[in-house]
Design a protein around this nucleic acid. Structure first.
Length: 769
RNA sequence: GGACGAUUAGCUCAGCUGGUAGAGCGCUUCAUUUACACUGAAGAUGUCGGGGGUUCGAAUCCCUCAUCGUCCACCA
């Protein structure tokens, strides 16, 4: 044996051996207990970050532990197409080439992104291997695999059949730059200083930061308890505006805070979430004035065509000219919603596909709530449970459409003859053409509403369409998007139902498909794997996606199978940077696991992270511990080296330790054997309770300070070396096995040197008390 | 505004159901003679955020205040 442990050699040697030997491949065995973990799929085109490392370390620990205990273990790996994130990354690449997503038809763009992901996919997979993850590669699944799409489509169809799916106008967080919708949980808020305009509004003065949306106002609201305005409720007021006078109803609603501004609010249901909901309560008309490109539409009269920012300037200017501004508070601080890429979110009303999560005839969220409430699914650490339960109580209908290309397309088709008002945009030669399909397909001059637009501001191309009649084939060929009115008729089908149909171009919210991940990966509904391995044992993931992901998996699990998708949920904390802040590129404090693997080895990195997270709280990257466990790996390596050396020096056969030696044991022998028994119990209890750090610290302390510092020192002085060495060998090898799930490489490397060793430590049985 | 969590040794943090304070790193002194300097031995450092309460006994339970972190909501 070398004097110092070389982690690189071990890492290069053993993973391949294990994989080639087929140790990772799960086998259905009715005589054994199944133990299943589905790996939360990392971004296919991304690379490993410290959070992934922690996740893999914990899951591999659980899996190797159960495998050695004799369970039929399955750890199923996969990667995620990561819809929005990947598309943003890809579009940045396009920008470098002077292109944008508008340069492609939907189909072309999808294929381009597929190629891009395919090219980058190798990295994360090899990093998972590098981590020593004993995942079953034969069952590897990508979130856009055929079998996934098939199940997701089937679920969508079932939801429709069960009357849980509907199409509705809904106010969504839309990013006009990304061209897609974001869910509430995906957007972030940022404090900004903006002017707050006090506008003269008929008999009132009211405060707003968005005067440009006033063309979409359909009411004025006050708090019903507000004595100042009570008498106005129910009346109509005439408001003089920039494009004429309009009449607005005054409504009373408690959502108005009498202390804010003047206590009067303009209600714009089409462009404000609260107003939209107030509109539902008071039956108000929804009048959109901003279109999906972020420009004002014809309702804004002479301001039509201006962007929101330009319009605001112009409107404020004109209001001032007309003496319609009372005053302006220039130092108003409020928070602004931003999308992932940091653009401002525009609340817009759009047709969307919705899942009714709490229907009277069939509630999706009720069983999901009760499962956790009643303890059928346990959440560790327990104090996170409240986040889940609260979310389940608050959860509302779920809009599942996304305007991304990169994802699973919603399997819906529209008959163009039945839906002539269906708007489409498509690439024709080098121009983007938009309009109602019925008009585009008919001869010019008849119905034609001439309009061209190009989503990319830099290259607006003017094109005369009046002479052109488009064939449906041409539209299909360059199709970018369809914008079906909310009352369009449709057919649900994976494949086109006929020549006359255009596909829905929206894709599913990532969480709609990943919410079915435990099902699709295992081959729901009737595969052998599914029957045997479902429900899975543990869902181990970061707590930040408990709402987005865990809740959806539980809902779909119960909805489709009547059973929970997993029995336990373990939520690990976020690994922060060394400075205690969140890792972020802009702060420049991102920790690259590769550097640590290079310097300290995979085992040390894994063990350091595991021992740094005792209770599921967020924690700073425990650099000290990574270093400490590198030293530990070297320490136990040298213990093994010394053990072999002593055996050799003794020269004679050393008997294998057996219980019948009892009478020849010294008190030190007995003490170390007893210590081993206690250690086994501590590890067992700790791992059952997901107290990984306790187990890690216990084994570290026992091997270093009990075995090495005390027992081995004592063995050096022993006369009866044969007994001492047989006990030492026994205890030491048992410890290697105990440690293997935590530090797979070093333990295997040493084990292979031990007398009478088997094929691999990972298929040995775990020591029992 | 609501919620959750934190405040323990110089630093980073454990301490699960209450019983005389622990780990890793760092620090001090000593040891380099036959595994390991990625070593060993010995050691120092804490009125466990402030205040109040329950108890024979509280870092641990309750109340309250302060500070920090995170999440959610919302700011018209």
């Amino acid at each position: 044996m070398e004097k110092a442990y070389n982690s690189k050699i071990a890492e290069e040697t053993f993973y391949k051996k294990w994989e080639d030997a087929g140790y990772f491949t799960a086998k259905v065995d009715k005589k054994k207990k199944p133990y299943t973990i589905i790996l939360p799929p990392p971004n296919a085109s991304g690379k490993m970050h410290t959070g992934n490392v922690l996740m893999i370390a914990i899951e591999d620990l659980l899996i190797r532990w159960h495998r050695m205990k004799g369970d039929a273990t399955l750890w199923l790996p996969g990667t995620d197409h990561a819809g929005t994130e990947t598309q943003i990354t890809f579009e940045k690449e396009l920008k470098k080439q002077g292109k944008s997503r508008f340069s492609y038809s939907r189909e072309e763009l999808y294929n381009e992104i597929w190629k891009f992901v395919e090219k980058n996919k190798g990295q994360i997979e090899s990093q998972i291997r590098q981590m020593g993850a004993s995942v079953d590669w034969s069952r590897y699944t990508f979130t856009l695999d055929e079998k996934v799409i098939k199940t997701v489509h089937a679920t969508f169809k079932k939801l429709a059949e069960d009357n849980l799916l509907y199409r509705g106008d809904y106010i969504v967080n839309y990013c006009t730059k990304c061209g897609t919708t974001y869910s509430d949980v995906e957007i972030k808020h940022e404090e900004r200083k903006d002017p707050l305009y006090y506008l003269k509004y008929g008999p009132f003065v009211l405060a707003t930061v968005r005067p440009e949306t006033k063309f979409g106002d359909t009411a004025v609201a006050v708090n019903p308890k507000d004595k100042r305005y009570k008498k106005w409720i129910g009346k109509e007021v005439a408001v003089e505006g920039l494009i004429g006078t309009f009449n607005l109803k005054v409504i009373g609603d408690t959502y108005v805070d009498p202390k804010f501004g003047t206590g009067v609010v303009k209600v714009t249901p089409a462009h404000d979430k609260n107003d939209f909901e107030a509109g539902l309560r008071h039956n108000l008309e929804v009048k959109p004035v901003i279109d999906i490109t972020g420009k004002l539409n014809e309702r804004a009269g002479k301001y039509a065509g201006l962007s929101v920012v330009e319009a605001r300037k112009q409107v404020v200017h004109d209001l001032q000219e007309n003496n319609l501004i009372d005053h302006i508070d220039e130092n108003y601080i409020h928070s602004v919603a931003l999308c992932k890429a940091g653009h401002g979110i525009e609340p817009l009303v759009m047709p969307n596909w919705f899942i009714n999560v709490d229907a009277e005839h069939k509630s999706l969220k009720k069983p999901a709530y009760e499962a956790v409430k009643d303890g059928d699914i346990k959440i560790y650490p327990k104090w996170r449970e409240i986040t889940y339960l609260r979310w389940m109580e608050e959860m509302r209908d779920w809009p599942v459409s996304r305007q991304n290309v990169w994802g699973i397309r919603i399997p819906v088709w529209y008959d163009v003859d039945v839906n002539p008002t269906l708007r489409v945009s498509f690439k024709y030669k080098d121009v983007i053409v938009g309009g109602a399909v019925g008009q585009l397909m008919h001869p010019p001059g008849k119905y034609r509403d001439q309009r061209t637009f190009n989503g990319d501001k830099e290259q607006v191309v003017k094109y005369k369409l009046s002479e052109k009649q488009f064939a449906l084939k041409e539209i299909k060929k360059g199709l970018q998007r369809v914008f079906p009115p909310v009352d369009s008729t449709y057919i649900i089908s994976s494949d086109s139902p006929g020549e006359n149909y255009l596909p829905e171009t929206d894709t599913f919210d990532t969480w709609f498909s990943s919410g079915q991940w435990p099902l699709v990966t295992l081959g729901y509904p009737d595969s052998e794997d599914f029957t045997y391995f479902y429900p899975t044992a543990v869902m181990e993931t970061g707590w930040e996606i408990i709402r987005l992901w865990v809740s959806r998996m539980v809902m779909f699990g119960y909805y489709l199978t009547g059973k929970p998708p997993f029995k336990d949920v373990y939520l690990h904390g976020i690994v922060r940077a060394l400075d205690g802040r969140k890792m972020s590129k802009s702060l420049g404090n991102v920790i690259n696991p590769d550097e640590y693997i290079e310097q300290y080895g995979v085992d040390a990195l894994r063990m350091g992270l595991i021992s740094g997270t005792a209770n599921g709280k967020d924690f700073n990257f425990p650099k000290d511990r990574v270093v400490a466990f590198k030293h530990f790996a070297n320490k136990i390596w040298n213990m093994g080296r010394f053990l072999l050396m002593m055996r050799e020096q003794y020269g004679k056969e050393i008997p294998e330790y057996v219980g019948s030696m009892q009478s020849q044991l010294t008190k030190e022998d007995k003490a170390i054997l007893k210590g081993l028994q206690q250690l086994i119990k501590i590890i067992d209890v700790s791992l059952k309770k997901f107290r990984f750090a306790d187990a890690a610290d216990a084994i570290y302390h026992f091997m270093w300070h009990e075995m090495a510092d005390k027992y081995i020192e004592q063995v050096k002085l022993r006369e009866d070396k044969d007994i001492a060495l047989s006990v030492l060998t026994y205890v030491y090898v048992a410890c290697l096995k105990l440690l293997h799930p935590f530090m797979p490489f070093v333990t295997e490397a040493i084990y292979q040197q031990m007398p009478g060793h088997g094929e691999s430590i990972m298929i040995e049985s775990y020591p029992k008390a």
